[in-house]
Nucleic acid binder design. Structure first.
Lengths: 223, 223
DNA sequence: CCTCGACGTTCAGGTGGGTGTCAGCTGGGC
DNA sequence: GCCCAGCTGACACCCACCTGAACGTCGAGG
């Protein structure tokens, strides 16, 4: 796996790069966003590790620009504990995962392995639910052959269900999933997004279990 | 899994400890930081549940001190909804997760299971009773391969039986389980829900012991 | 710098299904 | 045969959930 590391701190950067190499991956390490943009244009990566605070700009801006070009390379954000707003911005901008500094290098290895399993392990990770096809790496959903566009939040919610097909998930669980550690929201946001997903993908896509939460339904009938 | 609970509120503490034990873990419950420090020196825990407001100090200070000794035991902080600053302080001090009071005991179980999964690498545990399969973390029940939908109360009651497979449970015990502490119910609610469970899962799923209570039956014949 | 559009979030009002209660019935134990 | 614990079907209430719309916010493009 080829990994692009965008991190300006020399100590952390070196440690992470060494760990990546030790895990048997290829590592490209840049310290500025300008270099990072050059790198993603020059080569294809399987994973990008992105620090949010960089000398020549914000990592979330880089990420947003990357996603706007249609690039779906998995991005794992490296963030400090108190930069909650930045973290949310990063998830909104299209980050796939995040790691809170200071993090254990074992944790890093485990996450990278998880990415490899999820994305590179099987080149065509298609999940099928009735007549719905989900491509986790491409972030695309099709129902009856028709591609359906989901917004960032809609996708984040839907992905949570797809990754755990039989699991019942409570609203607090889902809120935490969508809003990271800043689960301060006291509203019906989850309900609203469930409704929007049902409107886009079909009413039977998500099943309500009163008083407990939601779970993936069985689209297209129980067949 | 062995869990240290640091919580001074007797009602909440008892409820959490009972839930931990019901989930099959070992629980040590202390109400003061002094006792907590003694406990972590005396034994190794797999998880620490830490209240932030304690009679003899702040939980975040305890946590910081613990981390400074190199102890990396997972710590889940229990915090009130409005103590945002304390929560951030706890995360900075090295907490791995947090749970906002008042929290559902199911939520607690799920989080504890998540910790166990993260550190042991196990998938969800499946409980099998004859031809009935129960996934406690997914909250799903299947009989002969057929998924059966349970409501919140029905699940709560069924879970109580599944977690104590051979134990006889009186109606007051079950009422306390379903309605936590304000057990103000004076009716045959338990009988009603036992009947509903039997209708959904089969008559042999719960066995009546006249004058004493109920216990889990042996579905699928006395095999 | 301004405008437009897309998306996220909040709010209020309506609704249906879960829940608790009750009355009457059943059946086992003595 | 009596008695009482447990069983069952029915039903009204209430709250969790749904939904449409309005509002705020952020980024793209001129």
């Amino acid at each position: 796996m080829r990994i692009l590391l965008i991190e300006d701190d020399p100590v952390l950067g070196m440690a992470v790069r060494d760990q990546i190499v030790a895990d048997g991956h290829g590592a490209d390490w840049v310290t500025r966003l300008a270099d990072a943009e050059h790198a993603v244009h020059a080569a294809a990566f399987d994973l990008i590790l992105l620090d949010l605070m960089l000398p020549d700009g914000r990592g979330s801006d880089f990420l947003r620009k990357l996603r706007s070009t249609g690039d779906a390379t998995p991005v794992m954000v490296l963030t400090a504990r108190d930069q909650i707003s930045d973290r949310i911005a990063a998830l909104d901008a299209g980050a796939d995962d995040y790691l809170v500094k200071p993090f254990d290098l074992f944790e890093l290895s485990a996450r990278i392995r998880a990415v490899g399993r999820r994305y590179a392990g099987n080149p065509n990770p298609l999940v099928t639910l009735g007549d719905i096809e989900v491509d986790l790496s491409a972030r695309s959903v099709r129902r009856a052959g028709q591609t359906i566009a989901l917004t960032a939040r809609e996708w984040a919610l839907f992905e949570a269900f797809v990754q755990r097909p039989h699991q019942l998930m409570s609203k607090p669980q889902l809120e935490e999933r969508l809003y990271s550690f800043d689960a301060e929201v006291e509203s019906n946001t989850i309900e609203v997004y469930v409704a929007r997903l049902r409107k886009k993908l079909g009413a039977d896509v998500i099943e309500t279990v009163r008083g407990m939460g939601y779970r993936l339904g069985t689209p297209g009938g129980g067949a």
